[in-house]
Each structure stands twice: as structure tokens, then as C-alpha cells.
Amino acid sequence: MQALKILVVDDDPVTRALLTKRLTKSDYDVDTAETGVVAVEKIGHQFYDVVLTDLMMPGGIDGIGVLEAVKGSHLKTEVILITAHGTISNAIVAMKKGATDYLQKPINFDELIMRLEKIQNWRHLLKNASDLRMAMEITEQTSGETIQNLEMTVADLQARLTAIRDVLERRELAPDERIAMALNG
């Protein structure tokens, strides 16, 4: 399975560098943005599996703004918010707006990796489900065509048999006449 593509959004260069290092070490494909504005621009241009964003950021677009931008353009992107201690109520607001999860500072990397693994497992299940659905839809479509063709053929044959029976029952005609008519349809 392909590595998750993660966008790390934080105005603090140390946090960005640290997160990049740890996540890259764990084989994730990492990109960074130093402001909400840059993040929104990047999100508009490409797809990320996960956006890991600080909640409080200067420059006009904060973590909630990044979340809203993600939800507006990519339904399949998961957003994890990073909140400072004591701002959990903001994180809950974010969860209500569709964030997948939140982490408190200082970031516990084991916890972060665990959450990402969960997302990856989840993705894997979704992929299975979607493969199954596609297989089902193709089966349904092809069997549907076969069944519908059969349905029309049977209805047609039934109509012809009824017509033949009607002709054969026409007592006013001679038997060989009836048979000839029936054979000619």
C-alpha cells in the first residue's frame, strides 16, 4: 500500500522540521506549509491523505480555516489538528466541523503514528469495500443485461406461443390451414 501523503502545517519552523523528520523516518510522504494561506494554496493544487495542522496560526487562516478549505475541496482528506494545552474546546469545535482527530502539544510522536496507522488501516478497509462494490456493480450490470434480454425474449416467445395457440384454436379453419398459419407466424 502506498505511503500516506501528509501535509504538515505549522508556523513554527522547529515543529515543522521535527514532524517532517519523524514522519519521513516512519516512511510517510511529507510536505510542509508555514502558514494557513500556503496550506490552502497547496491543498487547492494537490491531494493529501492527511493534513496535520496547528490550530492557532497567524496570517489570516488558522487551523479551522485550513480544515474548512480541505472539507470544501477534498472529501477524502483527513484532518488532524494540533492544539495547545488548554484549547481543547476549540478542538471540539473543529471535530464538529469534520476534523478526524486532534493532538495536544507537546506532540507525542508515538500517539501521532498510532493515529496515522489507524487512518491507514481505515483507508485499506475502504479500498477493499470500494473494490468489492466495483466488482458487484460490474457483476450487477452484466447480469442485469443478460437477465433483461432473457426477460424480453421470454415475453416475445410467450406472445408468439399465444398467437400460435389462438390460430390453432380457430375452429372455422381447416386443420392444415391452421397449421400452415401457425408455422408462418
Partner: peptide
Amino acid sequence: STESLTGVCPRFIP
């Protein structure tokens, strides 16, 4: 799409 009324309900015609 994969259902049929043949042998189920002759009151209907496809």
C-alpha cells in the same frame, strides 16, 4: 436490473 418477473407475475408485461 437483475430481477425478473417471468414466472412471478404474469399480470405484468416487460
